[in-house]
Write a protein that binds this DNA or RNA. Structure first.
Length: 881
RNA sequence: GGGCGGGUAGCUCAGUUGGCCAGAGCGACGGCCUUACAAGCCGUAGGUCACAGGUUCAAGCCCUGUCCCGCCUACCA
């Protein structure tokens, strides 16, 4: 066993165990089982993407849950897969095509799609392989992709079902249009960004008059599509122009001045240019006043022929500049005023979104939303943290129709066919052969569906829906969904709506919404900020377990979670600490034979009973934390127990017995207790740090083939031992006091000191007499220990007080009286303050009267302790001369 | 404009239904290569819990107001 390396090196260990688990098929969940079911579907990452830190967090948390539940005896399914990620993937492909000197249009739909599939097949596995590197125990045999035939059938089925129920319709509407991607997008995909824009004040001359109206606009180029000017009906400034005609500058089109209450008199000049085809408000205004809609843009954002020959073919922003110059030249530009305002940008490509008239397919999600809200209100889906539920309601209650068609090629083509002969529109799961009119001139809709539509079906489409499969029966609704808050509306809300609609049941019982990863300054990690960390580099540098531990440790129910590199380093140090504690133990197991150990408590030392009791508390705590999705607390509990109880104290406490005991049965006992506690703790830690724990577990005495399938450690009620915990606490306090004196008095660690302890109570005297000499040498160099009911304070010594105990450490020739006085006075100052506060509370008759008895008693105890300690401190101070 | 979250140690944050002397990690300072671990060990310092009121026997926690910060959301051209 001495061949165990001194430092933990994760690389080969991680690869080895992952392969082992795969070979043993531990990741695979049975279709049906006698065990209770637990299931999670992975938020499918982009098939052509790379793992980023957000994925790492999301999937680590899922892996923690799934490994934990598996150990708890569940038939645990983690359904993996990937998403085709329509628009983003196409954007990247188009960039590649440009480099290769071609384009989407040049290739045509069929060849373009072929390229996409080739790319998909090439990159297939990249992100999956990365998930494996962080240790994800997904059921890889069941891996799905949103464009697979089965899932595509689910998409068609769901869409047709919605169509048949009258929830799908086609409409020409002023929707958000991305001129760069040349597709409509939903309002969720529009990101408002504040820009330093300008207000352009333009003269609109009134026909047959020398007067003009002053119009302020942020988008002067849209004036080419103006079909009216509007003022407030009660605006005194403009009463005389209502009903008159103005001449649209440059264009010379005559347009009416209308009155509408929508216009805000306070804003701008109180006169509004109306462009029904290019502004949502103007669109509504136009409908009310029956104004013409003049579309001045091509789909790519260049000006079309309606803009007039002057501007035809120009880009919309070039046109703005040109138009401003022309207005200036004509003397119609009055002024340009800085006007910061927010402008919609496409969240995928960053282009400024254009409100644009086009025929689109919509889903009327209002009825679905109502049902989803009801389900959440009834608790069929529980949000963690709870506050996310409010965001959910807020969005759902104000939901608008969902534009689902996209003018793109990579995705599910809408299962809609048009009859060229009779104009019939057919929605069908399978390609129809002929129309009801008998015509075979059927043409499928060109548009594809929004990627989020297929994602919305993910929890059941991956399990075989629309077929009724054993998998659906066993695992739907899934137990919990784990995802970031940024896709609550995009994805979570839609899954709930579509799950209820299509499968009649919510898709998951719980949603755990985690933070987005931020850097040390609290800034979200993003490529544009350049503050990202690469998970694969990080794993290489620190090890997967260290990375996972840091992620779990930092996971709090906040919107952003800082993940400083120092925390990942701490994870690495923790892994190394565990490694070395295990190494120590393994080196001292000798020819220990666990099978010969009885479970008798006879030979147990105080510290054995203590560590078992502490283990119990830890096991309870960790389980409770995971039950409540308090990941960070679980990690803290494990860290605290392993490092600061097991390593700092227990290992030190047993060294004497392991090193110097000849009594083989006593040695056998401590070997048994220590290896048993470590083995169980490895199981508690396994979901968080799977590789390290497997490696150590395999080396320790254990039962079974893998820690992965070992049972989750439950607390053993027989191990709860508050008395031992109290006794150990006293001993630890004594040791800490001595160490503190040595440290503060600058006693060299190599020099031995004498310890005298006045122990008035028989209980503590007995405790110290029985145990202290066993334990003390491991912690501090001592020449002798004297314990007595009462003893005289030696000259020139430092003192400390622990409960009713008074410790004397003679330091003749070493002690600095001034330093010791300072030390004691400082302690006394704090003590006096605390004592005064406690006394004040207790002197209040209302406190005695109204506070619970236990609280009063606690306070009284506390006061007594303060008083006794103060008394001792003062006497020590007085004797200091 | 509306909504949500936050302001606790130098930094990042815990602090679960109000009730032991307000904690952790990192950083700082001092001392140790003590045979599991220097990726370690020991010790020390550092906080008017944003501010002002209120409720209560008791407030970091509950209520009101103020000041900051962040985010989400909204059609003011």
């Amino acid at each position: 066993m001495t061949d165990i390396p001194k430092t933990y090196s994760p690389q080969e260990i991680e690869a080895k165990w992952y392969q082992f688990w795969l070979e043993k098929d531990y990741f695979h969940a049975a279709d049906t089982s006698d065990k209770p079911s637990f299931s999670i579907v992975i938020p499918p990452p982009n098939i052509t993407g790379n793992l980023h830190v957000g994925h790492a967090l999301d999937n680590t948390l899922q892996d923690v849950l799934i490994r934990w539940k598996r150990m708890q005896g569940y038939n645990a399914l983690w359904m993996p897969g990937t998403d085709h990620a329509g628009i983003v993937t196409e954007i990247i492909m188009e960039q590649k095509l440009e480099v290769w000197g071609t384009s989407r249009e040049a290739l045509g739909r069929e060849k373009f799609i072929d390229r996409m599939w080739n790319w998909k097949n090439e990159s297939r596995g990249t992100i999956i392989e990365q998930l494996r590197q962080i240790g994800c125990s997904c059921d890889w045999e069941r891996e799905r992709f949103t464009l697979d035939e089965g899932l595509s059938e689910a998409v068609r089925t769901a869409f047709v079902k919605l169509y048949d129920d009258g929830l799908v319709y086609r409409d020409t509407y002023l929707a958000n249009w991305c001129p760069n991607c040349q597709t409509v997008i939903s309002d969720l995909e529009v990101e408002s960004i504040e820009i330093d824009g300008s207000f352009y004040h333009i003269k609109y001359p009134i026909k047959g008059s020398s007067e003009y109206l002053e119009i302020a606009t942020t988008r002067p180029e849209t004036m080419l599509g103006d079909t009216a000017v509007a003022v407030h009906p009660e605006d005194n400034r403009y009463q005389h122009v209502i009903g008159k005609t103005v001449i649209l500058p440059l264009v010379q089109r005559e347009i009416p001045v209308i009155a509408d209450e929508f216009v805000d008199r306070e804003f701008g000049t109180g006169a509004l240019k109306v462009t029904p085809a290019h502004d949502p408000n103007d669109y509504e205004l136009g409908l009310r006043h029956d104004l013409p809609q003049i579309n001045i843009f091509h789909p790519d954002g260049t000006l079309n022929q309606s803009a007039g020959s002057e501007y035809h073919g120009m880009d919309r922003f070039d046109c703005r500049s040109a138009l401003i110059e022309d207005l200036r030249d004509s003397g119609l530009l009055m002024k340009v005023v800085p006007h910061p305002h927010s402008v919609g940008h496409h969240d995928r490509c960053g282009a400024i979104v254009e409100p644009y008239l086009s025929p689109q397919w919509f889903i009327n999600v209002k009825p679905l939303a109502e049902r989803a809200i009801e389900a959440v209100r009834k608790g069929e889906v529980v949000f963690i943290p709870e506050r996310e539920e409010k965001r959910f309601y807020h969005w759902m209650e104000n939901i608008l129709p969902w534009p689902v068609s996209r003018q793109r090629w990579w995705g599910h083509r809408l299962p809609i066919w048009y009859c060229d002969d009779c104009g019939e529109v057919i929605a069908a799961v399978e390609t129809p052969l002929e129309c009801t009119c008998g015509s075979q001139n059927l043409r499928q809709e060109e548009d594809v569906l929004d990627t989020w539509f297929s994602s919305g079906l993910w929890p059941f489409s991956t399990m075989g829906w629309p077929k009724t499969t054993p998998l659906l029966k066993s695992f739907y609704p899934t137990s919990v969904l784990v995802t970031g808050w940024d896709i609550l509306f995009f994805w979570v809300a839609r899954m709930i709506m579509l799950g209820l609609k299509c499968h009649g049941e919510v898709p998951f019982r719980k949603v755990y919404i985690h933070a987005l990863v931020a850097d040390e300054q609290g800034q979200k990690m993003s490529k544009s900020r350049g503050n990202t960390i690469d998970p694969i580099d990080t794993i290489y540098k620190y090890g997967a377990d260290a990375f996972r531990f840091a992620l779990v440790f930092c996971t709090l129910p906040n919107p952003y979670m800082p993940l400083p590199e120092s925390q990942i380093e701490a994870g690495k140090r923790f892994a190394n600490k565990i490694w070395n504690a295990s190494r120590f133990l393994l080196m001292n197991l000798g020819n220990f034979d666990p099978s010969r150990t009885t479970n008798s408590n006879d030979n147990l030392y105080l510290c054995d009973r203590w560590i078992r009791s502490r283990f119990n508390a830890t096991a309870k705590n960790v389980t409770a934390c995971l039950d409540e999705y308090r990941f960070s607390d679980a990690a803290h509990a494990l860290y605290e127990f392993l490092w600061h109880e097991f390593c700092d104290w227990y290992i030190e406490l047993i060294k004497q017995r392991l090193y110097y005991t000849d009594d083989s049965s006593s040695k056998q006992t401590v070997q048994s207790v220590a290896s048993d506690i470590l083995e169980r703790t490895m199981r508690l830690l396994h979901p968080t740090m799977p590789f390290l724990t497997e490696e150590i577990w395999q080396r320790l005495p254990h039962e079974g083939d893998s820690i992965m399938v070992a049972p989750w450690p439950n607390p053993n009620p027989a191990w709860d031992d508050p008395e031992s915990e109290n006794a150990m606490q006293t001993i630890m306090d004594v040791i800490e006091s001595i160490r503190s004196i040595r440290g503060e008095m600058n006693v060299a660690p190599s020099s031995e000191v004498e310890i005298l302890i006045k122990a008035p109570s028989a209980k503590n005297r007995n405790l110290l007499e029985t145990h202290l000499e066993d334990y003390l040498p491991s912690f501090t160099r001592i020449s002798s220990v004297s314990i007595a009911e009462s003893l005289e304070k030696p000259a020139a010594c430092a003192t400390a007080i622990v409960g009713d105990l008074t410790l004397y450490v003679p330091l003749a020739g070493v002690i600095d009286i001034g330093a010791e006085r300072n030390r004691l006075e400082k302690r006394l100052g704090k003590l006096t303050a605390d004592l005064t506060a406690a006394r004040k509370t207790l002197d209040n008759p209302k406190f005695i009267e109204r506070a619970p008895k236990t609280v009063v008693m606690q306070k009284q105890d506390l006061l007594e302790r303060f008083e006794s300690e103060k008394e001792k401190l003062e006497s020590n101070l007085n004797m200091l001369e």
